[in-house]
């Protein structure tokens, strides 16, 4: 899956008023299908380290657009399996080191295409092996390292928790077995990342950032501690900070005094949905903003109107519209960024 930007730019078709904007579903489907034919571009190769992420983003967008079969299932399974490492983790592309983030994307893809049967043939007892790979990255302070390099990031912790949850290996999903991870230590770390403004940063003391809010709120949500930790007062405070991310253009930014960007419409809104404060957003204005970021001719969405489209902003734009209740879209799960009807099947 290509992560190269373009070819098109997000814009409004000539003569169209914002209220006439429509989601060009078929164009977005065709755009995602076309991404894999762009291997002659340098950028395709420079983004190899993200490849499995690109596939997850493209596939999720297709599911939410109501076209889950638009990419060939066999091809997806072959590719994901070719990223499997001996450790039970997955790399971003064949031959890449296993990494907790790419293991997470791989598990999300396999869940969406019901591919664990095929993996089981290659790797018997595959779910437990992947779960053990993920669990082995937990550090004594509760955090998770991304790879053997030891870099720490709340994204890795969140990825570890949702991966284990999809596999059914969180402690509360297997009450009769010894826990694979120290869940209380993980959530204690997340809580230490909360700042004086009520939002969360990448590590204790680091500036609040919408992307990090999503990973921290998502981690607490999956761990089942979101309600008890924040309480109504904490939700009000965090929700106020999140709703302040909406600017008069309708779009959302990631931190105070920064530019609006379509990917933040996902991170901010999904967090607000998890704390039950999504209705504080001006939905009509945000919908119009996201729709102005699409390329109505060739499909795909950009970070903001006038910029080049890419698959990353396409999935977060579509997922954002799904949260906004845009007609015809499949409902998205705000914590997993996957179709709700699929995550509903896991025992949480």
């Amino acid at each position: 899956m290509s992560l190269a930007a373009g070819p098109g730019r997000g814009h409004v078709a000539v003569g169209q008023l914002p209220e006439e904007l429509k989601l060009v579903v078929d164009k977005h489907v065709a755009y995602i299908q076309s991404l894999d034919t762009r291997k002659d571009e340098l950028e395709y190769h420079l983004t190899e380290h993200l490849r499995i992420g690109g596939i997850y983003w493209g596939l999720t967008a297709l599911h939410l657009l109501g076209h889950p079969d638009a990419l060939p299932r066999e091809g997806l399974i072959d590719y994901v399996l070719s990223c499997l490492c001996e450790s039970g983790g997955f790399g971003a592309a064949p031959g890449h080191d296993a990494h907790i983030l790419y293991t997470g994307y791989s598990v999300q893809i396999l869940t969406m295409i019901d591919g664990f049967g095929a993996l089981e043939e290659r790797l018997p007892d595959c779910k437990q092996k992947i779960a053990r790979f993920v669990a082995s990255h937990q550090q004594p302070d509760g955090t998770f390292a991304g790879d053997e390099w030891g870099e720490i990031d709340t994204r890795f912790l969140f990825s570890a928790l949702y991966t284990l949850s999809l596999l059914g290996y969180l402690p509360h999903q297997r009450p009769s077995e010894p826990p694979l991870i120290n869940l209380p230590a993980a959530t204690a770390y997340i809580k230490a990342c909360q700042n004086f403004d009520g939002a969360f940063g990448v590590s204790p003391g680091a500036e609040s950032h919408s992307g990090q809010v999503f990973t921290c709120v998502g981690a607490l949500y999956i761990a089942g501690e979101l309600d008890s930790y924040l309480g109504e007062e904490g939700k009000d405070r965090l929700g106020a900070w999140l709703s302040e991310r909406q600017l008069p253009s309708g779009g959302l930014n990631g931190r105070p005094e920064k530019l609006v960007d379509v990917c933040y419409s996902w991170w901010v809104m999904s967090s607000m949905a998890m704390i039950g404060r999504l209705h504080w957003i001006d939905k009509a204005k945000l919908t119009a903003f996201i729709l102005q970021c699409q390329d109505p001719d060739e499909g795909g969405m950009a970070d903001r109107p006038g910029d080049m489209v890419d698959v990353f902003h396409t999935v977060f734009g579509v997922a954002g519209l799904s949260l906004l209740g845009y007609p015809g879209l499949v409902e998205v799960d705000p914590a997993y960024c996957m179709p709700r009807h699929i995550t509903a099947q896991i025992s949480k």
Binding site: D36, P72, G75, Y79
Partner: peptide, 20 residues
């Protein structure tokens, strides 16, 4: 060379030469 490729159209790859 990368083992990304083969019959699978999703994974076939044509690296820019220098980088590859």
């Amino acid at each position: 060379p990368t083992d990304e490729g083969g019959p699978n159209p999703l994974a076939a790859i044509a690296y820019a030469e220098d980088y590859e």
